[in-house]
């Protein structure tokens, strides 16, 4: 178990912390924009920089104050940081002299065929596989990864993401995976921590962070771009009645103490129907709107809709079949349904 307590570090204008964190034998994905302190967290744990205040412990023993070499925290860099004057095999062999271990890791990471090549002749994905093999060869007690997939092409990134998921599962050590890519963070993390300005803004399961963002920042950063100002009309048990313009929404939520709130609805939870569709979705919020614009993002369409009865817009992400069936175009009307559980009160 990796435990970070009241960790602080100041560099010039940038203040990191205080950060408290506990990572069991699980994958914590750390998500945040550039300069939010993600890499600093890894540098502090790995021992590249020493904290001003706070402590770091791994399996009960203190790490802070110890040198990098004593910490047993495996570090994987964005570009792999392979030693350019050594072959892939020599790179892995740098961490272990056990030839069987090298063979096993090479087979696990599917790099057996490239072991005798120099790093400069390897593709980005191959380099990362070798880097990971080298790190695992040292048999670390925790694994720290700094955006290892960020420089890869999308298809390779997707494939490696899938492989990493099962690899991390088998490791049974704390894994911290830093990324600025929401999809990678969601796909790999058992839990996700959102960093902002050197501190943790929210930590929780990927589902919680996406569907129940604690702040507007987290909402926006996890793709919840539908943030609407609403007035609380009434609360009845776990159902709240909220008004945006002349549109009423029902939300499933714990008790709200304020009367003016911000609600968010994830674009993937906004469903679109033809205006004349006999929508039979009892209990769902139904609103009508006009399509402003749409964007083809490859595997899905992003549709911007102005609500007819409120000064607000909603974004919906829909699959291509739905897009084709509804014959979406700018200016056409659309009926929108949103389940009450998808209406989240941010605060």
């Amino acid at each position: 178990m990796l435990e970070v307590t009241s960790l602080c570090k100041t560099y010039g204008d940038f203040e990191f912390g205080p950060v408290d964190l506990r990572v069991d034998d699980e994958v914590l994905s750390v998500l945040g924009p550039s300069g939010s302190g993600k890499t600093t967290l890894l540098s502090l744990i790995a021992g590249i920089v020493e904290p001003d205040v706070g402590s770091i412990s791994l399996n009960g023993s203190r790490l802070d104050g110890r040198s990098l070499q004593e910490r047993r925290t495996g570090l994987v860099f964005q570009d792999g940081a392979l030693f350019p004057h050594m072959t892939a095999r020599e790179n892995i062999g740098y961490a272990t002299t056990d030839q069987d271990r090298i063979t096993d890791l090479a087979s696990l990471l599917e790099i057996t065929d490239i072991l005798d090549r120099q790093p400069r002749t390897l593709s980005g994905g191959e380099r990362q596989r070798v880097a990971l093999a080298r790190t695992l060869a040292a048999d670390p007690d925790a694994l720290l990864l700094d955006e290892p997939l960020s420089s890869l092409d999308a298809p390779i990134r997707r494939r490696l993401r899938g492989e990493l998921h099962s690899l991390f599962d088998s490791l049974e050590i704390p894994v911290i995976y830093v990324t600025h890519d929401q999809r990678t963070a969601m796909a790999l993390g058992d839990r996700t921590a959102i960093f902002r300005d050197g501190a943790i803004e929210q930590i929780g399961s990927p589902t919680t962070v996406v569907n129940r963002p604690a702040t507007q920042f987290v909402a926006r950063f996890t793709g919840n771009e539908n943030l609407l100002e609403a007035t609380v009309l009434e609360q009845d048990g776990d159902t709240a009645y909220l008004r945006v313009g002349d549109v009423d929404f029902r939300a499933t939520t714990p008790e709200i103490e304020k009367t003016a709130v911000t609600i968010c609805i994830h674009p993937s939870r906004v469903r679109l129907h033809a205006p004349d569709d006999a929508v039979d979705t009892p209990g769902e919020n139904t609103v009508v709107g006009t399509i402003d614009d749409w964007l083809n993002e490859g595997d899905e369409y992003r549709v911007e809709i102005s609500l007819d009865d409120a000064p607000a817009t909603l974004t919906a992400t829909i699959r291509p079949p739905t897009f084709d069936r509804l014959a979406i175009d700018a200016g056409s009307g659309v009926r929108i349904t949103v389940p009450p559980g998808a209406v989240h009160v941010v605060g």
Binding site: A46, S67, Q69, L75, F77, A81, R134, T135
Partner: peptide
């Protein structure tokens, strides 16, 4: 010589001297 190579070496359990001799100096 990229510092991350030295960090990588040390995080693999190698001393500063070994890191210098096997990574920094050759490069």
């Amino acid at each position: 010589v990229d510092r991350s190579l030295e960090y990588a070496s040390q995080s693999l359990g190698k001393s500063r001297l070994t890191t210098f001799r096997r990574v920094t100096l050759p490069l």
